[in-house]
Computed example of a mutant assay.
Amino acid sequence: MTAAAVGIIGAGRMGTALARALTAAGVPTALCTARDSPESTLDHLLRHTRIVLLALPFPVALGLVSGPVGRCGGGRTLIDATNPGFCRDRMVPPGLSGGEIIAAAANGWRTVKAFNTVAADHLAATRIGGSRVTMPVAGPAEAKPAVFELAARLGFDPLDAGGIESSREMEDLAVLMARISTAYGLHGRIGIRIGELDHAPVAVNGQGAATA
């Protein structure tokens, strides 16, 4: 990573937590807020960071990239961490995802969906049973390596989830995880681990029931 490697737009819980975690991991990070110094304004961030991450409510992010911001990327990487499923009103037509809509609007960028399945308050909790939490990453192949690197620097296990259309399942997954977290009082302490199952021999007893 080089100087001003990552710019985060959005200084709410997720944006602030990501900026803190990335900085602690040694990744030069700029966080854009309305109260920042002139060197950290939105214009400066957009001009001088290699990767820009949207840590905003989906409607705000879409409104932003639907204007000049969406055309100024010059082929750089835009990470969409939004979750339209958390919006009160339905924002995405059936059969589409917020990630696809963001990517279409931000046509000057290479849009990657990532970081939407982790909770802001638990970015440091990156392990399940000793194994790293899986972070699905969807988008164009040429933009993924830098996003994989960021996820790995934070302690996650990045997983190639395919093209940006996989945002549909990733956004549904985020909603499901939030519902489970609420139902079991986990307060966001929830993650997924995707990996190959351990192979164990299976025997069949006399009644036809399988036993490991």
Rank of each mutant, 00 (worst) to 15 (best):
M91A: 13
I164L: 12
A138H: 05
T111P: 06
N116Y: 10
A161G: 04
G85A: 02
P136G: 08
M170F: 11
L96D: 10
P93V: 03
R132D: 12
F86K: 09
G129P: 06
G139M: 03
K144Y: 00
S167W: 13
A178Y: 14
G99K: 09
D89Q: 12
I101E: 10
P140V: 10
G155A: 02
D157E: 15
I102R: 04
K113S: 01
R132S: 15
I128Q: 00
T134S: 15
G98K: 05
P93M: 02
P84G: 04
I102L: 06
S167T: 11
I164N: 14
E142G: 04
A183W: 15
P145I: 01
A103K: 09
G163D: 15
A151Q: 05
V112G: 03
S131H: 14
L150C: 04
F86H: 12
A125Y: 08
E142T: 08
V112W: 00
R179P: 05
I164Q: 13
N107A: 06
L159K: 12
A103F: 06
A119H: 13
G155R: 11
P94M: 07
F86W: 14
S167G: 14
E165D: 15
D89V: 12
K144E: 03
W109V: 03
A103C: 06
A152Y: 05
R179Y: 14
A152V: 01
K144L: 07
P140H: 10
A105L: 09
F86P: 10
L154N: 03
E100Q: 13
L150I: 11
F148D: 03
A105T: 00
D160K: 02
R110P: 05
V92E: 07
P94H: 11
P94L: 08
G129L: 11
R153Q: 00
I164S: 10
L154R: 02
P84D: 07
